[in-house]
Design a binder for these strands. Structure first.
Lengths: 213, 213
DNA sequence: TAGTGTGAATGTTTTCACAGCA
DNA sequence: TGCTGTGAAAACATTCACACTA
């Protein structure tokens, strides 16, 4: 199998979202053309992206929405749910826990906060726990991922504790560059990194024209 | 000036964050080597990224933290604050409004929600307003950007209203692909798009090895 | 015949080696 | 001498044209 451009993976998630929308609308046949239009890329791109993983369509006909949806979920590892804990139950942590679609991908298996006053509270049927419970929870509840929604200055310390407890991956919502062993995957999803994308148009006009045209 | 890879811009934000950290620690000289290590890229990359915009260092010596910091802020358009409104004051909207560092970049000039019961509430000294006020607010308060923290199914409708009112750019936190005229910039910062990056390691093991190795 | 699947061409980004300057 | 700045090479990603097949 050929080397897969990493950008292709991100686009697969967009295609999947579109397919789920089509399915909800009762449409069961689509084409690279239609997917391309919805995803705002070219039809070449759609076909190429899919071809890295296999052939899921019918020549001269197109794709069956349900089939392609199932294949993409399988490719993306979204055909199962993953155990996750959230560390930091401030407003961001709470918002994430309640994000629609969140529970399709993750099963919340622990909520942690260092503030003792939060420990009485409950979200989605889970009581917030002390940080002291973290190592045992990760081991005993099959928690594969940890989501960091703590302030930047405690992010590294919390990441260290997750790593020590054997976490597989970290979703980092804190504006900090984390250092972890290379076998632990870190995804920086944090808001300020998001804002770096904003820079394309906040960018000083002197350079903006070069970039956006 | 040469064509600037868009990924380079995102990295500039990381470099800026590192420089601000160095400055806070009282360090005032650095090198491409040091920046590279902190940003987890190569020193070549750092120098190349900076070279797209100019020469800010001293050969044989390195970079002055304060100088480079100022230049990066200038390049990224972060040497001024931008007017912003948030549409959708659910928990996500609230968390974003309170995000540390947020107010360094944006000045909140309006909060909107369609739910009348929210209109009595106040965040950061601003009262939540009815959607009816949106067009006038954008025109009169120099609101350049709109941040969408609404459910996916109303995202397009809200985006349309922002566009009609003359918004310059939209930060889209809703899991929806927006259609807007090309002169309006859209940044998809939404959580599910963030999760697409997660897919690199949630990815079916069959393909993961090809990608991460 | 209509629309997929893919090798080859084109375009973009990163890496590298070294020229250039304090 | 040491570290920046940059053209050129290598790696990577996208676009395209067309072979293929239901």
């Amino acid at each position: 199998m050929a080397k897969v451009p990493s950008a292709a993976i991100s686009r697969l998630v967009t295609y999947l979202r579109i397919l789920e929308d089509l399915e909800a609308r009762g449409i069961n046949r689509t084409s690279s053309e239609q997917l391309a239009e919805e995803a705002q890329v070219t039809a070449f791109q759609v076909r190429k992206d899919l071809s890295y993983f296999g052939s899921y369509g019918t020549r001269g006909v197109g794709y069956t929405v349900q089939v392609l949806r199932r294949e993409l979920r399988q490719i993306l590892g979204l055909n199962r749910r993953w155990g996750l804990c959230i560390v930091g139950m401030g407003r961001l942590g709470q918002a994430i826990a309640d994000y629609p679609g969140f529970s399709e991908i993750f099963e919340l298996r622990g909520l942690f906060d260092r503030d003792p006053s939060k420990i009485t509270t409950t979200f989605r049927g889970l009581q917030v726990e002390s940080m002291d419970n973290l190592p045992r929870a990760i081991a005993e509840r099959r928690i594969e991922f940890g989501l960091l929604a703590v302030p930047a200055d405690s992010a590294q310390a919390v990441a260290d504790r997750l790593v020590e407890s054997g976490i597989k991956g970290i979703l980092n919502f804190a504006p900090a560059v984390l250092e972890v062993p290379k076998e632990v995957a870190v995804e920086n999803v944090d808001f300020l990194t998001g804002l770096s994308r904003l820079s394309f148009f906040v960018l000083n006009p002197k350079w903006r024209e070069e970039m956006i045209g």
